[in-house]
Amino acid sequence: MINQTIKEAIQNYSDELTEIRRKLHSEPELSWEEENTTAFICEYLEKLGITYRKAEPTGVIAEIKGGKAGKTVALRADMDALSVEELNKDLPYASKEEGKMHACGHDAHTSMLLIAAKALNEIKEELPGNVRLIFQPAEEVATGAREMVKQGAVEGVDNVFGIHIWSQMPTNKVACTQGPSFASADIFTVTFKGRGGHGAMPQDCIDATIVASSFVMNVQSVVSRTVDPQNPAVLTVGKMVVGTRFNVIAENAVIEGTVRCFDPKTRDHIEKQLQIYAENVANIYGATAKVDYYRGTQAVINDEYSAKLVQKVASQAFGEDAKYNEKPTMGGEDFSFYLDEVPGSFALVGSGNPEKDTEWAHHHGKFNIDEDALATGSELYAQYAWAYLNE
């Protein structure tokens, strides 16, 4: 199942792999602004002679055509950065862009897939099928995958595979569980309108601060008392904007939060309950409520066949000890939109190493990766494609 030529190629290109990752890390671009990253990918693929087309406005869809007839497997890497200030100022490859940083590892994903593509391209005549390469923008705002699907990224594809570097796992460990992996991630906004007035005359007002506070305290019971405990769910209020001055009773309050779960029925139920709770809390005080609910990513549900193939590839390529049992996360991933179209799976590759200070949480200003994990991720991309096409 494992192709030795791929393994040797990835090892030979390890220095280049690190160099590409560091270049991308130092030049972060936010969602839908990845123009330089897109140009770099196109130039790299062109040098390899790999056919590609630029997506709009950013992103790249490429294809390695095998020398033999067969299926088509897609490999996906995201490439956008975050609005996070890098705190690792001493790194020689620290971000050059103030307030922008690759704080989630997408620089690693892109570099891993480029080197995987280079290795696969060298054995393309042996490939019984084709390898689609998807370099995706805007994962961090959960709109990139959906747009790439619209632009034909998975047309004619039989299976899709993605990887995420994971700082909560030891370096070089590989996890790919069957079933739920990442949760659906939705955003809600609740706007309460009361009646403002002087802080000394509350009898003439409807205090939006009290309304909003009551809602925040009560809405937690949606999960704790109306959702089956065997269906994991998280409801978090992350932002509350209310009031203008110390002696003015607030007329308006705006609350923003997120809902995470794995089960579609639970998702529907929580959305409905948010509306019910907001309206009833507002009615108690004589205020009004408006709920806006935006459905972001779907839950990432790994196909059984694909997940087992990842585990098989990982054990054969890196040893049985490389396999790791990582629990599903309530984090969101728009890779789910590819899985809505074709079967596939999403794997985690560990990059956490306390000796290298790479166990910081994703999206933190001190996030960094153990670069020893790059070769593991790159080879996993390439070996999975080889194994799938040869199954």
Rank of each mutant, 00 (worst) to 15 (best):
M1G: 12
K7D: 09
I10K: 02
I10G: 01
Y13R: 09
D15F: 14
I20D: 05
L30D: 05
S31F: 08
E33I: 03
E33F: 08
N36M: 11
K47P: 09
I50C: 06
Y52R: 04
R53I: 12
K54V: 09
T58A: 07
V60G: 03
K65I: 12
T72K: 04
V73D: 02
A74P: 05
L75E: 07
L82V: 08
E86D: 12
K89S: 11
D90M: 10
H102A: 02
H109V: 04
K118M: 00
E122L: 13
K124Y: 01
E126N: 09
N130F: 05
Q136K: 11
P137Q: 01
V141T: 15
V141I: 14
T143D: 14
A145T: 03
A145P: 01
E147V: 14
Q151S: 10
A153N: 03
D158W: 12
T171A: 12
N172V: 02
V174S: 06
A175H: 03
T177Q: 15
Q178V: 15
Q178M: 15
P180L: 03
F182I: 07
S184I: 02
A185T: 04
V190F: 03
T191Q: 08
F192Q: 11
R195T: 12
A200E: 09
M201G: 13
Q203L: 10
D204P: 02
I206A: 01
A212E: 11
S213N: 10
S213V: 02
M217T: 15
S221E: 13
V223R: 00
V223Q: 03
S224E: 12
S224C: 11
T226S: 15
D228F: 08
P232M: 00
A233Q: 04
V237G: 11
K239M: 14
T244E: 15
F246A: 13
F246P: 11
N247C: 03
N252S: 12
I255A: 10
V259M: 00
C261H: 05
F262H: 08
F262Y: 14
P264E: 05
H269G: 14
I270L: 02
K272V: 02
Q275S: 12
A278M: 02
V281Y: 06
I284M: 13
I284G: 12
Y285I: 00
G286Q: 05
A287D: 09
K290Y: 03
D292S: 15
D292K: 13
Y294N: 11
A299F: 01
I301E: 00
V313K: 12
K323R: 13
Y324H: 09
M330T: 11
M330R: 05
G331V: 08
E333P: 02
S336C: 05
S336A: 15
F337W: 10
Y338Q: 03
P343R: 06
P343V: 07
S345W: 10
S351G: 15
G352W: 06
E359L: 07
H364E: 07
G365S: 11
F367N: 12
F367W: 12
D370Y: 05
G377I: 03
S378Y: 06
E379W: 11
Y381P: 08
W386P: 09
N390K: 08
N390T: 15
